[in-house]
Nucleic acid binder design. Structure first.
Length: 555
RNA sequence: GCGCCCAUGGCUCAGCUGGAUAGAGCGCCAGACUACGAAUCUGGAUGUCGGAGGUUCGAAUCCUCCUGGGCGCACCA
């Protein structure tokens, strides 16, 4: 619908320009938006004000010209008006809006699918937590945001791959092996002074116990320590990664790929990239140390890529990793990071730009930390002490739907209070149930109709003119704009727009439900309303599907 | 010290990339089930959009400075 208005306007601008009445100007700033106040029409355009600055004419006069040259071939406009400083307000005929119901019915689960992605290959990388411990609640938010962004982009016609990057090459990993070794010896009865720098969590003991059971005492002797640690690192890493995968799966997050950092080092992959950068002059040496000139791309200082001891840094691997992504044919890359990594952004951009990739091929989404509460009181979280609430615990306690929905209720770059008590409460404080309840209610109505042998009508069976309640019209417009909402969410990569949309829509529906009976003695009215609520179901389902939240038929 | 991100009713947050009179939810008070599901609905008020300038037809939104919070500033990942 919005596109139709834009087309009408563009035609008019062209026509007016040909006639020389106005000088055609940049149309890229042309904006058609839904006004906050419904009295200002279904859509409003700022075209006249935009053109006024270059044309040096009164915006209202330009608006008049544009309207005079507007040809509404499809006859969709009820009226237009010029308002305020030069807005053009468009009022669309009710029957045109109602026509959208037919489209929703026909497209059904495909309603809201877009083609703006055009099959473009996109990779979205998220979570990517080191397999040194279980996922905690902070990872959960990133997991949902990444997953839903992926779903949105798929809906919009992108060819999306979800990837988890495993940092399994650093010394945090060998620290894991060391922690396990020490706990093993402790379990075997030795008195161990367990260092602060090691992983404190209980899960380390569990893993140690498991290994001890399988392999008895072969780690007790003090020989070949490095070898033992490396072996234990490998085993523990695998156990933890399997646990992570299981948790993510139960959270509804399934990755297409798990990409191991160590793979980057195969065939000297990392050094080869550094060699390339050296040749192009972005990498220079300072004694044994290799530096990357990230300052050339706006970073505060240059960054080390190979340490004095000859080992490449994490950053070096990350450059190679991103090059690898491009080499695999991804045309657009989305990284979802914790907000505490924001200082890393200029470096990452420098990395890809030095390798000849345009900056706009990479988009980094920052997800702010989660403030965990229980009944309003902060829950102590400390990774060092091993005290944290895991994703598993959140899932067990509040459930997948409530957890996911709660993480999607704010923009990802703003802090989120997550209250475990509120999230599991089945009450009006919990929007997920508000939306799901609307869905279950409609299912219930449809079931009731079936029990009374009332056929579920299709658009051709009903008289759309009977849908004339204010809530009906509001919902019809809102549903028609669903694809526009999705498009906005995709362009801005903002999943929270979907939850806000759903809350609003469920609100209008509940209000409508309380005022009006769907099933009544009036057969024609019943048919019209049954069909109408059926289309609401379509939108709710499609949107919840993108969020990875279930649409229950009863609750 | 330098850099990035925030600051919107009592609380938690939206505000469609600069638009018209700034919106929800929670909480508070008072009401609505012999009616398709009360996990619902109806009504009631609260704002110098942290402060001060600037940009223009127009600013919560963009620029500068200040105040107050969060986070970064490794040859860690």
């Amino acid at each position: 619908m919005k596109n139709k208005i834009i087309n009408l306007l563009e035609e008019s601008v062209k026509k007016s320009a040909e006639k020389g009445i106005i000088s055609e100007s940049d149309l890229s700033r042309l904006e058609v938006a839904v006004p906050a106040n419904p009295a200002h029409g279904d859509y409003a355009a700022n075209a006249a004000m935009i053109l006024a600055s270059t044309a040096k004419q009164n915006p209202r006069k330009i608006a008049e010209t544009l309207l005079a040259n507007l040809t509404d071939e499809e006859n969709i406009l009820q009226k237009t008006e010029i308002a305020g400083p030069g807005f053009i307000n468009f009022f669309i005929k009710d029957n045109i809006w109602k026509n959208e119901l037919k489209i929703i019915e026909e497209k059904n689960e495909k309603f809201g699918k877009l083609y703006i992605g055009n099959g473009k290959k996109v990779q979205i990388e998220f979570v990517s937590a080191n397999p040194t411990g279980p996922l905690h609640i902070g990872h959960a938010r990133g997991a949902v945001v990444g997953d839903v962004i992926a779903n949105m982009m798929k809906t919009a016609g992108y060819d999306v791959t979800k990837e988890y990057y495993i940092n399994d090459a650093g010394n945090q990993m060998s620290n894991l092996g060391k922690s396990v070794l020490l706990r093993l010896r402790e379990l075997a009865g030795e008195k161990i002074d367990f260092p602060q720098t090691c992983y404190q969590g209980e899960y380390i003991k569990d893993i140690a116990a498991q290994i001890l059971k399988n392999e008895q005492n072969k780690y007790l002797a003090r020989d070949n320590e490095d070898k033992k640690i490396s072996y234990l690192t490998d085993i523990a890493g695998r156990i933890i990664l399997e646990d992570i995968k299981g948790n993510l799966k139960d959270f509804g997050v399934i990755f297409d790929d798990y990409f191991s950092e160590s793979k980057l080092y195969e065939n000297d992959g990392v050094s080869k990239i550094l060699e390339v950068l050296k040749k192009s002059g972005f990498v220079y040496s300072d004694g044994q140390t290799l530096w990357f000139k990230t300052t050339e791309f706006g970073d505060e200082k240059d960054r080390v890529v190979v340490r004095k001891n000859g080992e490449p840094t994490y950053f070096a691997a990350d450059i190679a990793y991103h090059q690898n992504k491009f080499s695999r044919g991804f045309e657009y890359i989305v990284d979802v990071w914790g907000a505490d990594h924001h200082g890393y952004i200029p470096r990452m951009y420098a990395g890809i730009m030095a390798l000849g990739h345009s900056k706009d091929k990479l988009k980094i989404i920052l997800v702010q930390l989660v403030n965990l509460l229980r009944a309003g009181e902060p829950v102590a979280m400390s990774t060092r002490s091993g005290e944290f609430v895991t994703l598993r615990e959140v899932l067990d306690e509040v459930g997948k739907d409530a957890a996911r929905y709660n993480f999607l209720m704010r923009r990802s770059d703003s802090h989120l209070d997550f209250d475990l008590e509120v999230a599991k409460r089945q009450s009006n404080e919990n929007p997920v149930y508000y939306v799901q309840y609307a869905h279950a209610r409609i299912c219930s109505i449809i079931k009731m109709a079936a029990e009374r042998n009332i056929k579920l009508p299709s658009y051709l069976d009903i008289d759309p003119a009977l849908l004339k309640e204010p809530e009906e019209l509001a919902l019809i417009k809102m549903m028609s704009r669903y694809p526009e909402m999705i498009e906005g969410a995709v362009r801005s990569l903002e999943p929270h727009r979907i939850t806000f949309y759903l809350n609003e829509m469920a609100g209008i529906f509940h209000s409508y439900y309380n005022k009006n009976k769907v099933i009544s003695d009036d057969n024609n009215l019943t048919a019209a309303r049954l069909f109408f609520v059926k289309t609401i179901l379509v939108i709710l389902r499609n949107a919840l599907m993108i969020l990875g939240v279930s649409a229950p038929e009863k609750m």
